[in-house]
Amino acid sequence: MRQPNLTDVALFAAVVEAGGFRVAAQKRGMSASSISDGVRRLESDLGIRLLNRTTRSVVPTEVGARLLERLRPALEQMSAAFGDLHEDAQRPVGTLRLNVPVPVARFVLPKLVPAFLARYPGVSIEVTMDNTFIDVIAAGYDAGVRYEESLAKDMIAVPIGPRRQRFVAAAAPAYLEQNGTPLHPRDLLNHRLIGHRFESGKLGVWEFEKDAARIRVPPQGPLISSSQDLEVGAALGGVGIIYTFEEYLGPLIEQGTLLPVLEDWWQAFDGPYLYYNDRRHVPSPLRAFIDFLKTETWAG
């Protein structure tokens, strides 16, 4: 057995952590073939197979899993030691990669990002909008933003943005003049509703709350879309009633181009959270962003 190259050891760990060569290559800024060559070289030096490769998955062998379990603490310490050569607690450098839902990218981050980048000029941010519930860490992101009901229990969560939000229902004046104004959620069964379908294929069911009562209404109507912009535009055009984040409709209600309906039944919920996995060494851009969020007071 030849002495293994530490770089190849790190590449092997990166493939296992990422669940595949492609994601590992994206995270490390390398080609998948280069990482594959490094892992093969390590297997040759050790004289053992470390990974089982199929067309659909890459998983460690029993020996590979045992080896990685022994190596992980040392690899984390090495990463932290090398990172400390380039990172300063007051002057973090690097790229912060975030995966966030569309409403957060549209209404929350624009109120935070400019001040954060001004405070930390050595940091850049890459933001991907994604409404699906994915393992953002395995996908190569430093952190994600989601709502509490979809957070994994093993994640650390930090509040970001408004702490309370609402869904609001509204329709164009012309629509209500022609079809009447619903006075109870049950009345929606006799109205045209504009529905939202998530990327997962699931149709968003409308939920209304008042006192101890909760009513769910599957939206039935002439339009179901995965685009909030299209849904809002359709509501403005008199297609039907819309029920979505207050941030989308609030300005239009203030202008009078949409009129609120069922205000006593609008559902309120907790605001979003930034989340990341519990690891010993948090990259300096992410640490700076977490510290920044803890000093911010959300004004709405």
Score class of each variant (00 low, 15 high):
257 T>F: 04
247 E>Q: 15
230 L>W: 07
242 I>L: 13
280 R>Y: 10
250 G>I: 02
275 Y>V: 12
246 E>F: 03
257 T>V: 14
250 G>A: 14
239 V>P: 08
226 S>M: 03
249 L>Q: 10
239 V>L: 13
230 L>S: 04
255 Q>Y: 10
282 V>G: 04
246 E>K: 12
259 L>C: 04
278 D>W: 09
275 Y>G: 07
246 E>D: 14
268 A>G: 03
248 Y>V: 10
262 L>Q: 09
250 G>W: 12
258 L>Y: 08
242 I>G: 13
281 H>M: 03
237 G>W: 08
240 G>E: 12
287 R>M: 08
254 E>P: 01
249 L>P: 07
258 L>N: 11
260 P>D: 05
252 L>C: 06
282 V>L: 13
258 L>H: 08
272 P>C: 02
242 I>M: 06
254 E>T: 13
274 L>Q: 02
263 E>Q: 09
273 Y>G: 00
259 L>F: 10
249 L>T: 14
248 Y>P: 08
226 S>Q: 06
248 Y>D: 13
283 P>N: 04
244 T>S: 12
270 D>A: 15
239 V>G: 08
262 L>R: 06
284 S>T: 00
267 Q>F: 09
268 A>M: 03
283 P>W: 02
242 I>C: 13
232 V>S: 11
249 L>Y: 08
254 E>Q: 12
253 I>D: 02
233 G>A: 14
249 L>G: 12
256 G>Q: 11
238 G>H: 06
267 Q>P: 05
267 Q>K: 15
262 L>M: 02
258 L>D: 10
278 D>G: 06
245 F>Q: 15
285 P>S: 01
259 L>D: 10
231 E>I: 06
236 L>M: 08
272 P>T: 06
270 D>E: 15
238 G>W: 05
231 E>H: 00
234 A>Y: 03
282 V>H: 05
287 R>C: 00
258 L>I: 13
241 I>W: 10
240 G>Y: 12
256 G>D: 07
229 D>P: 06
259 L>M: 13
259 L>Y: 09
279 R>K: 12
273 Y>F: 15
244 T>F: 02
243 Y>R: 04
233 G>C: 07
251 P>G: 09
257 T>R: 15
269 F>E: 07
260 P>F: 04
234 A>E: 02
247 E>S: 14
233 G>S: 14
238 G>T: 09
279 R>F: 00
268 A>C: 04
272 P>R: 00
238 G>M: 05
243 Y>L: 06
284 S>F: 01
260 P>V: 09
285 P>E: 00
271 G>I: 06
232 V>T: 14
262 L>T: 09
283 P>A: 03
241 I>R: 11
248 Y>H: 15
282 V>W: 01
257 T>P: 01
279 R>G: 03
276 Y>H: 08
234 A>V: 01
233 G>V: 12
266 W>N: 05
250 G>D: 13
239 V>R: 10
233 G>Y: 08
257 T>G: 06
274 L>Y: 04
269 F>H: 05
272 P>H: 00
241 I>H: 10
273 Y>H: 01
283 P>Q: 07
246 E>G: 11
258 L>Q: 12
243 Y>D: 09
227 S>C: 07
233 G>M: 10
263 E>F: 00
255 Q>C: 04
